[in-house]
Amino acid sequence: MEGVTLFLIASGLTLIFGVSLVINFAHGSFYMLGAFLTYQLYPHILYRTVPGFYITIILCGLIVAVLGLLFEVLLMRRVYHTEHLMQLVVTIAGVLIIRDLVKVIWGVNEAASPVPDALAGAVVIGGNYIPSYQLAMVAVGIVVLILMYAALNYTRAGIILRAATDDRGMVALLGINQAYVFSGVFFVGSFLAGVAGGLAASFEAVDYLLDTRVIINAFIVVIIGGLGSLSGALIGAIAVGVLKALGLLWVPEISFVGAYLLVAVVLMVRSFRRSVE
């Protein structure tokens, strides 16, 4: 279940990195905003019903996407020409600012959004009770995955995006306005983060520290899967989800570090392979 939100966040993060080469620390903050917005808006939109739930989440995703777009246009755009470190600073500053704004608006207490009534029960599959909400989340994950796959492979925008990930200089030479590509990818990435946050609002404790908790996990996923790769984000999310679940079951003592050890191993194998090549 955690895997679905992880996949959504990580895919946004990896898309943004793939095109703009920006490591967006503020991505977790957009996720957190999505969660808080859902908590805030759901009571006003067909409260506790399934359609209302989906409408809220998509609406919150769009709001967050607009914020992400503003972040790109107003701030990030000014630092693309500078070094990676400078870009990192801007995203870290974004984290600090968003976190304090969240504190002002929603306070420091945990917020929780209810699960829609229709999804509050459980379904019996093969003798195991599986909460309906988890199934619904997995469904959302699959829908998003299919949509993204289709969009990336069969739409013009998707093809431009993949081309830009591959070689952004060449894309610019082909007469495509890079500024639009960068803004677009921030918009889509932030939308995914917002949706993930909305989904998480119903099962995770949402507070102002959610941003750092989630961004570190998202980085793990993205590193394991390979920066800039969407299918990598999927594999990474599943790997981390399974690792965490199994770790808790078998060796709770090291479940905390298991994912990081995996990252270290993946990175070391990478460097080893590269030095062999």
Partner: peptide, 27 residues
């Protein structure tokens, strides 16, 4: 470990090492 990689990957490895250390101190 980290210098085997460059820029952002090296940075991520320092993060992973740090979290492992934190995990040990914590657990």
């Amino acid at each position: 470990l980290s210098v085997q990689l460059t820029f952002i990957y090296a940075g991520m490895l320092t993060l992973a090492c740090a979290e492992v250390t934190f995990g040990i101190a914590h657990q």
